[in-house]
Design a protein around this nucleic acid. Sequence first.
DNA 1: TGTACATCAGTGAACGCGCGTTCACTGATGTAC
DNA 2: TGTACATCAGTGAACGCGCGTTCACTGATGTAC
Lengths: 205, 205
Amino acid sequence: MPKRGYHHGNLRQALVEAALQLIEAKGPTGFSLSEAAKTAGVTPAAVYRHFEGREDLIAEAARQGYIMFADLMQHAYDKYQPSALAAFEATGRAYLAFARKHPGHYIAMFESGVSVNRTPELADAAARARQILERAAADLSQHIPEHKRPPASMFSAHVLAMSHGVVELYARNSPGATSPFPPEDLLESGIGIYLRGLGLIEPDS
Amino acid sequence: MPKRGYHHGNLRQALVEAALQLIEAKGPTGFSLSEAAKTAGVTPAAVYRHFEGREDLIAEAARQGYIMFADLMQHAYDKYQPSALAAFEATGRAYLAFARKHPGHYIAMFESGVSVNRTPELADAAARARQILERAAADLSQHIPEHKRPPASMFSAHVLAMSHGVVELYARNSPGATSPFPPEDLLESGIGIYLRGLGLIEPDS
DNA sequence: TGTACATCAGTGAACGCGCGTTCACTGATGTAC
DNA sequence: TGTACATCAGTGAACGCGCGTTCACTGATGTAC
């Protein structure tokens, strides 16, 4: 497959990567279709051969992000089987790890303002990611003292919320808030305390 | 004080309110200085009599938001004294309540991309809000089984993170994620489980 | 009470800019014969 | 193997737009006398 010339060869993916790079460098607001085209070494008009427009390009970047994210969580989940607890904790940690490793994708997914329902492909990818976390939560649910266990989707949402909050407030410098603790420690301890509250960890100390 | 005429009378505040209204309606990206001026019934150039520019205007909106936010938390804190537990829970709930009641301010504060350190006044207002939550956490800290209590700033951060995460993922429709539960319930139960993990609530069931 | 004048909030025209998007085109690629 | 041709990815010029920002100005306000 030719790399360069009049025909680019793989422009679609090159545009996605240019977009990710720009989003990471300048925030979701700073990203423009024209600049992405320039970065990919191509005229702005060429973008329209591959995408419907600016939003569609961001949506594709987000979609690829969700796929990577889901893979990462799936991998973490598999790795720590058969311990439902360890697997659940690992999928939570994967959230922060993903935000750190792939900030461009993360921003496209969660901060760009593009709705997860913009395209069916994007919605599917996002749903798959969510399902993995929910499965881990369902596994764990079995181990909760029988009577009065909360629905699995509920504490999956709790952990997701805390993970997201830690990332937004302390791992990304967006609001300029100084982190009192390393985000990884903060999330680890927060989830630990939460799981203790569920009766899943012994009050060890 | 005259309301209308060649001289506006209270343009500065009118611009802040126009900005808030636009930010709420169109997102942080959709807001423009020119449109805020138009909304306030004034030429774009007039804005420069009162603000250094677009960012400065958003910063002032955010500052007013932090002041209201701090007042709201302070009020909640005072109301539930002397119960450290109730006061702490109330300040946490205040976060979600604020996001609901004042979405424009909330966006200016947390989603606009304006750094909290942009102006000293903004930094002060944000610091005051943070301190109130941290004081509530410190009060509560006294009640934690003596040996091995985590630092107060740590579980203040945990609660803040979960509150923020719930708001971002489930209370605002930004990512288009459908909420499995009413955000208020989700936050309430999440914080409840967390506090149980700290040994502050009896395993009642 | 009336007049002259300083202040300064808001005007309106103008600027250069990058944006997203369109269009008729061009020329590289790959296939049919 | 060589030639004709269809395909279609990318060009480049052009568009209208709203943006943030500047500038010399105008006219309402409020104060000094």
